[in-house]
Design a protein around this nucleic acid. Structure first.
Length: 441
DNA sequence: CTAGGGTTAG
């Protein structure tokens, strides 16, 4: 084989990968095969093609993306800054924030930090998902500028959402004010305002949310369907359905089209206040405006029926959903399961769990907690403990609500030694007890 | 390429 032919073959392969990537034409398996093929003849020109392949694999299976990176590193090809960005994203999505930090360390060492704005976003998302938003704030406000990486509106939005998720929406509000007063190039936009308005409303701070909304309008930023849906949802939560309707009317006046999420908020609000006639009206309005119900709409409807002791009707919706091609999700199953639990229909519960697993949906904390509570009410300790074992076998660590349900049962039947042992187990697993766990003690 | 809204459990 001549020296010249190899690079030509290689270039054809690289161009082929690039074209297929942009056409969205590579599956995970294809990518893995192409990766093997390319790595055999790869040279320094191959890194772009390698990046396409690692992106494709990592999208589907982040841990596999990380392992491909290791093979790149041991082959004779130097990763570039894009490769490291893909790596950080894969590490974070594989739940290995520690490896994400290590990769970021390489980026900084190589002097790529100033251009790593997207890489930082992946890292910030993962940090906030672990409820360490204070740390994320330090990165945005101090560490990124230290490396000449100027935080952008995405960086700040991740912080706003993280703070709101930690019920620190007032700090998010302060951060918005600081951005505005500072007058820098990065100013809050409709996403920033919507996020913080939503967070304030979820904490019941209606007045502050309203002031922020006014401030947004004054600054010439137009609300959109997301902003309005958050406000409608907040008004529903505050039992102010009339105000919700006012906001809906203002949306229509401003030509902001309500979408399925907007209508779902209203439907949930009316069900919660027991006004079913109004729900019918909203359904009609939806259909008139060409908005189709989705899985969440059905879940809301089923939840209402189950909680009104009408599981059979909820089941009819459930069965018709499958026919309509709307696949029930883990929430749908939880809702129906909870309905059966209230009826003490243990047989139906087990059939439903089997159906769920058969349809490829794994039970989550909610599902298990419905089972734990149902057995707890029957005071069958053995079954409750068995569910904990099953959860752990599935790699699902019980959460505070799961322990809460068990601790309440044990204290009710006077088994205080078992209460303490569950309590200690919970602490050992790094969980912070809440008021419900403490009450029996 | 990276950000925001609706549904479920003790």
């Amino acid at each position: 084989m001549s020296r010249r032919l190899v690079p030509v073959d290689r270039r054809i392969l690289e161009q082929n990968i690039k074209a297929r990537y942009h056409a969205g034409d590579i599956g995970t398996q294809d990518a893995l095969h192409l990766f093997d093929e390319l790595l055999q003849c790869a040279g320094s020109s191959s890194i772009r093609a390698i990046n396409y392949l690692v992106t494709t694999v990592g999208r589907d299976c982040p841990a596999l993306g990380v392992s491909l990176f290791n093979r790149v590193a041991s082959a004779n090809v130097a990763p570039n800054s894009i490769t490291y960005t893909i790596l950080v994203d894969c590490c974070c999505r594989a739940g290995r924030l520690d490896l994400g930090f290590a990769a970021m360390g390489h980026i900084i060492k190589m002097g790529f930090a100033a251009d790593a704005i997207v890489t930082f976003s992946h890292l910030l998302n993962a940090i906030c998902a672990e409820k360490k938003t204070s740390y994320a704030m330090d990165i945005v406000l101090r560490i990124m500028p230290m490396f000449n990486c100027v935080p952008n509106i995405f960086s700040y939005s991740i912080l706003f959402k993280g703070l709101c998720n930690e019920k620190r929406s007032q700090e998010a509000l302060e951060l918005i004010q600081v951005m505005v007063e500072h007058g820098g190039s990065c100013q809050p936009n409709v996403v920033s305002y919507s996020t913080v308005i939503d967070g304030l409303l979820k904490e019941g701070l209606v007045g502050k949310a309203y002031s922020l909304f006014c401030e947004m309008l004054q600054r010439g930023i137009s609300p959109n369907a997301v902003t309005c849906s958050s406000i409608i949802s907040g008004m529903c939560k505050a039992q102010s359905m009339d105000k919700s309707e006012e906001v809906l009317q203002q949306m229509l006046d401003r030509r902001i089209l309500p979408d399925v999420t907007t209508y779902n908020s209203l439907i949930h609000g009316y069900y919660s206040s027991g006004r079913c006639k109004e729900v019918d009206r909203i359904f009609q309005e939806m259909s008139r405006n060409g908005v189709q119900p989705n899985i969440v709409t059905y879940n809301i409807q089923m939840d209402y029926l189950c909680k009104s002791g009408r599981c059979a009707e909820a089941r009819k919706i459930f069965d018709s959903m499958i026919g309509l091609g709307q696949k029930p999700d883990v929430t749908t199953y939880s809702i129906l399961l909870h309905g059966y639990a209230m009826e003490k229909s243990f047989h139906e519960m087990h059939c439903l769990i089997d159906l769920m697993v058969g349809n490829g949906i794994s039970p989550d904390h909610h599902v298990y907690n419905i089972l734990i509570s149902a057995y707890a009410k029957e005071e069958t300790v053995g079954e409750v403990m068995h569910i904990f074992t099953k959860m752990r076998q599935q790699g699902l660590n019980p959460n505070v609500a799961n322990y809460g349900a068990a601790v309440n049962l044990l204290s009710k039947i006077g088994r205080m030694d078992d209460v303490m042992s569950q309590f200690n187990q919970m602490i050992t697993e790094g969980l912070a007890p809440d008021i419900i766990v403490f009450t029996p003690l």
